[in-house]
Design a protein around this nucleic acid. Structure first.
Lengths: 214, 214
DNA sequence: AGCCGCACTAAGCGCCCGCTCACCTTCGGC
DNA sequence: GCCGAAGGTGAGCGGGCGCTTAGTGCGGCT
């Protein structure tokens, strides 16, 4: 049991890559504050206070408040890309890979809801340069999902008239989980992941045609 | 052609109910500013400037900046409820009514994207009392859609193992349109509405069973 | 023991925020 | 022609913001 090791689910202890310790505590505090109140409604004094430090301490580790958001957003998006890429490059049929991609992506949005909320909904608070960097990562997310769907159409597993539009809808459905998911609600992240994987397979028409499905 | 009349699509000229004229111009300016930058990043000076007035003029018509958001949110949610209720109480089969609900709800989110964005994503900026009022309207949206899906399950048109979860997903899918829709993008609101109606019918299994579908 | 370097703090600077107030027009009623 | 109400303005108040700076405590090397 190391301080920043993988957990049983293959998930990675979050923010383990951020050093030194004080910088990580500030970043975790910022994630919580941004998720609760939004970037613009969060003060640097609030972030420092949650991390048990004085307001000035923040500026030893980060140049500005925006740099904090940028770091959070990049790390979060890299995680999102790696989740979707891992599923896309898996070994099963397109049906299995799509179900895997959706259920693990949704599990992340539900289980790490505070992070996901900041990552997905505070993009506009970044400056043009940082935003463009993040948008490139989003395009990689889109490409990973679109690739799976195209595979499924090619093998005849899926029936999808509009691949780009359907890709957009699938990602949109997953991302919006970060908006409504409630930790105290009746559903666990695993349950929502399974439900959504089923719904998405229905959206692409998996299992309704006579074509080869594994 | 009156100043606040219905248009060809059955849509209502927005904000026609807000009087006097100066109050309406301020409210429209606030919708644009909140949608572009978010509530907390918008200043009262910006709102007044967009409406061609001095900062002080805002406080003749509205007590606080939050009251502006509250008014926008309530009017927007009332419109959302009326769209969904009109579809739910229509005359066709559950399949037809669900397609109608989704396509018109999506058309509103895409076509009136600035309004929808404020309505759907700035809820947390309201105080507890106003938020509770708005949440009641959201529950009515949920009830309208759930009603259609329950009808379809009862008639055998739909195959839905988890009605509550599927209702949530359908609404989530529609609402998230306000986040990603781009007026300069390749799709019109009508096209997205049609695409989404098709995807949702697939999600509920309409047209796949042997049961009565009209 | 002496000292350097660095993480951190107390205090506060300059700015802009939401909001107010004293005053100014415009205009219908008599 | 005068009046009061309604709707608007310019100036500015108190306060909290992001961020800076001078100084402090302390662990580790010689």
């Amino acid at each position: 049991m190391s301080t920043a090791a993988e957990t049983t689910g293959g998930d990675i202890e979050p923010w383990g890559e951020v050093t030194p310790d004080a910088a990580r505590r500030l970043l975790v505090a910022a994630v919580e504050a941004f998720a609760e109140r939004g970037y613009h409604a969060t003060t640097t004094r609030d972030i420092a206070g949650r991390a048990g430090m004085s307001p000035a301490a923040l500026y030893i580790h980060y140049k500005t408040k925006e740099e904090l958001l940028h770091r959070i957003s990049r790390i979060g998006h890299e995680r999102a890309v790696s989740i979707l890429r891992a599923a896309a490059q898996g070994e099963g049929s397109a049906t299995e890979r799509l179900a895997d991609a959706v259920s693990s992506f949704v599990r992340w949005h539900a289980g790490r809801r505070t992070t996901a909320r900041v990552v997905q909904y505070e993009l506009d608070a970044l400056g043009p340069e940082a935003r463009e960097e993040i948008l490139a990562l989003r395009r990689q997310c889109d490409a990973a999902v679109r690739g799976i769907i195209e595979d499924g159409v090619a093998t005849g597993e899926f029936d999808v008239p509009d691949v780009k539009g359907t890709t957009l809808a699938v990602l949109s459905l997953c991302i919006d989980v970060a908006r409504w998911f409630n930790v105290k609600g009746p559903r666990t992240p695993d349950e929502v992941g399974a439900l959504y994987a089923d719904l998405v397979l229905r959206m692409v028409g998996a299992g309704t045609s006579g074509a080869a499905q594994r």
